[in-house]
Design a protein around this nucleic acid. Structure first.
Length: 286
DNA sequence: AGTATCCTGGAA
DNA sequence: TTCCAGGATACT
């Protein structure tokens, strides 16, 4: 789902297209969304777009920011006269107001930013820039594997070793715990464990240090691959121009239950860990 | 540490 | 028609 590579892909697109625009008007169409003070963003200019874990921060030039989490199905899509020509992915729920469009930013130079979300788990909140880090989500974020584009602290191998040695939970659950390690979700956790040859059900604290080292490298490797492919379009992830990613064409084990292991040909198994679908090869992952 | 919850479209 | 997926959180 939207994880570090997907959110970073959006950030890069917004950094390129959104920065410099003035916000003329904001339409909040979903009453469930506690957007905050609309007045605080109207007539401000976008200064920068930052990321921490799976969270995004749009900084304005008036001391305010818009903190965002797209959760499972959120989309942030920029449109202007030039980018209108780009044919969006079929996964793009709708560029123009649709029933899934929760917020519309009317920008200067006839541009728009659409915030779409089918399942309504995503959130978007106006806060003072200084207070972004004190929002519970950002405050509690753990360090992030060293990939790119983030303001979070970088997870070192030593730290990963330390965190794992104290965690009495399956290693896969640890990888996905944003308070311990940020940015990794279900897709990349499954694929990293396959790449490292480690059974996702094993207790984190029981892993040997060479296994932790291998896993550390595998996590970085799959995240980088995800970034290169501009993310995975599983449900309806799209980038800031409405285009799909392609990491779904390179899934190692995620979503491949019953299919052949890419290494040994035996069938990929699926179990549940902490309520989440967990895919692995019993023969390759020990 | 595990489980229910939010929400909805799409799969079974 | 029912069930399932999933990020993060609130419970137990």
């Amino acid at each position: 789902m939207p994880e570090l590579p997907e959110v970073e892909t959006i950030r890069l697109g917004l950094q390129k297209h959104l920065v410099g625009h003035k916000i003329d008007e904001v339409e909040v169409r979903d009453k469930k969304l506690s957007f905050g003070e609309k007045k605080a963003v109207v007539s401000a200019k976008v200064k920068a777009v930052r990321r921490a874990g799976k969270g995004l921060i749009i900084d304005l030039d008036n001391g305010y920011s818009i903190a965002i989490h797209i959760k499972l199905t959120g989309q942030l899509v920029y449109r202007d006269d030039k980018t209108k020509k780009i044919k969006p992915s079929e996964k793009y729920v709708d560029g123009l107001p649709s029933k899934f469009t929760r917020v519309i930013f009317h920008l200067d130079k006839s541009a728009f930013l659409f915030f779409n979300d089918v399942r309504r788990f995503a959130w978007m909140k106006v806060v003072k820039t200084q207070e972004v880090q004190s929002l519970p989500f950002f405050q509690e974020l753990g360090p992030e594997p060293p990939v790119t584009g983030s303001i979070s602290n970088k997870l070192t191998l030593e730290e990963f070793n330390n965190i794992a040695s104290k965690a009495n939970m399956p290693i896969k659950v640890l990888l996905m715990d944003q308070k311990k390690i940020s940015g990794v979700g279900n897709i990349y956790a499954n694929d990293a464990l396959f790449d490292a040859g480690i059974d996702p059900r094993r207790k984190a604290k029981e892993l040997k240090s060479e296994e932790i080292k291998k896993l550390y490298e595998s996590v970085i490797k799959v995240l980088k691959k995800g970034l290169e492919e501009q993310g995975a379009t599983e449900i309806n992830f799209v980038n800031a121009l409405g285009e799909a990613g392609s990491y779904q064409d390179y899934f190692l084990v995620y979503g491949r239950e019953g299919e052949k292991c890419l290494e040994c040909g035996s069938l990929i198994k699926k179990v549940k860990l902490a309520g989440r679908g967990t895919y692995f090869c019993e023969r390759c992952q020990k």
